[in-house]
């Protein structure tokens, strides 16, 4: 069956390349933008910036704690540091450094975290962090962003360079559909209603926004009208957009490449319970670690693909 998708794509690209290209552009626009990386310049796509601005780029070696501290120091000196490594090493390994030297001290540091979630793939669970959004959103002063494709990641990278304050920017490794416009304006903290609907709302973030777009077409083919909202900013959460949508649809699904504990779904649940309790179903990883496999296989095995969003949407509808 061919689906009538509201968004389509002509190419696939990795979101980390969106970061790398955005970072280079941010460096060209503002001489205060500097970069750091803990021995993963190739993986983070930071090489073009390093080549063009060698005096503004610092290789830290495999020493993430030191990288976070140096970033805080560069920020004190008026620079805008982008510190890049895998999401696992950018959060869990350096939580205390981020907490004390960046978040509590309100330093203008951009923590740039690649290879997040299951779609890291074959490297397996040691590298597939699924707790990072939760850890980062708990920190006061921290802004948490998880864009959905190459174009949105590039736009987000440019936007955070202009924003003053600590930011956690999460992106990934796999080649993924590029379905949002290249010229989009990225507004931190502003949810994007991508598809209008009336029966159920799908709130999705990161790679799962694409799965939500596919799920919407599947639901529509069965006569169910789903609204798709792209929550690229987990914190601050656009509560107004969430409440407005659920007021109309009466039920919702959250979809994320993250643990259910502490993820986007948790934030949405808090928002609904305080303001307008409504049925909410979660699509995410349910209290387990990942494993090796291809991104597609892993999303299927752990229940994170479009089919699972469809199931969750029907369940939410049945609870109305």
């Amino acid at each position: 069956m061919s689906l009538d998708l509201k968004f389509t794509y002509t190419e696939k690209k990795d979101t980390r390349s969106g970061f790398g290209d955005g970072f280079l552009e941010a460096g060209r626009r503002n001489p205060n933008v500097v970069g750091l990386c803990a021995d993963l310049i190739g993986s983070l796509k930071m090489g073009d910036f390093q080549k063009e601005f060698p005096e503004r780029f610092f290789q830290t070696g495999i020493a993430e704690a030191n990288m976070i501290g140096i970033s805080a120091g560069l920020a004190i000196g008026g620079k805008i540091p982008f510190a890049g490594t895998f999401a696992n090493f950018a959060t869990g390994r350096v939580y205390d450094q981020i907490r004390q030297s960046v978040a509590y001290s309100q330093k203008n540091v951009k923590i740039c975290a690649s290879h997040a979630g299951l779609t890291l793939g074959e490297d397996g669970a040691t590298h597939q962090i699924l707790e990072d959004l939760g850890m980062m959103k708990m920190l006061p002063h921290m802004t948490v962003i998880n864009p959905c494709d190459y174009n949105q990641t590039k736009a987000a990278t440019l936007a955070i360079a202009e924003y003053e304050g600590p930011v956690y920017l999460r992106f990934g490794r796999p080649s993924w559909p590029v379905f949002t416009p290249a010229d989009q304006k990225f507004e931190i903290g502003k949810a994007w209603k991508m598809i209008d609907g009336k029966d159920v709302t799908i709130f999705a973030t990161g790679h799962l926004v694409w799965e939500a777009v596919v799920a919407e077409a599947m639901l529509r083919s069965e006569g169910i009208s789903a609204e798709v909202i792209n929550i690229h900013t987990i914190k601050p959460l656009d509560e107004e957009a969430i409440l407005e949508s659920v007021k109309k649809t009466g039920c919702a699904v959250s979809a994320e490449e993250h643990q259910l504990n502490g993820g986007l779904g948790d934030s949405i649940a808090q928002c609904l319970i305080r303001n307008n309790p409504a049925p909410l179903e979660y699509v995410g990883v349910n209290d387990s670690f990942g494993e090796s496999g291809t991104p597609t296989q892993l999303l299927e095995k752990y229940g994170l693909n479009a089919e699972n969003i469809v199931k969750a949407a029907k369940k939410a509808l049945s609870r109305k």
């Binding site: 500097v34 005096e55 503004r56 610092f58 704690a65 030191n66 990288m67 976070i68 501290g69 140096i70 970033s71 805080a72 120091g73 560069l74 920020a75 004190i76 000196g77 008026g78 620079k79 540091p81 205390d96 450094q97 907490r99 004390q100 030297s101 509590y104 001290s105 330093k107």
Partner: peptide, 22 residues
């Protein structure tokens, strides 16, 4: 910057030192 959780100050100082060099 905040300090108290030990071991972080030298890294911070390095960052500021490098900002001064730039």
């Amino acid at each position: 910057i905040a300090s108290g959780s030990l071991g972080q100050g030298l890294s911070v100082a390095l960052g500021v030192a490098q900002a001064k060099k730039i």
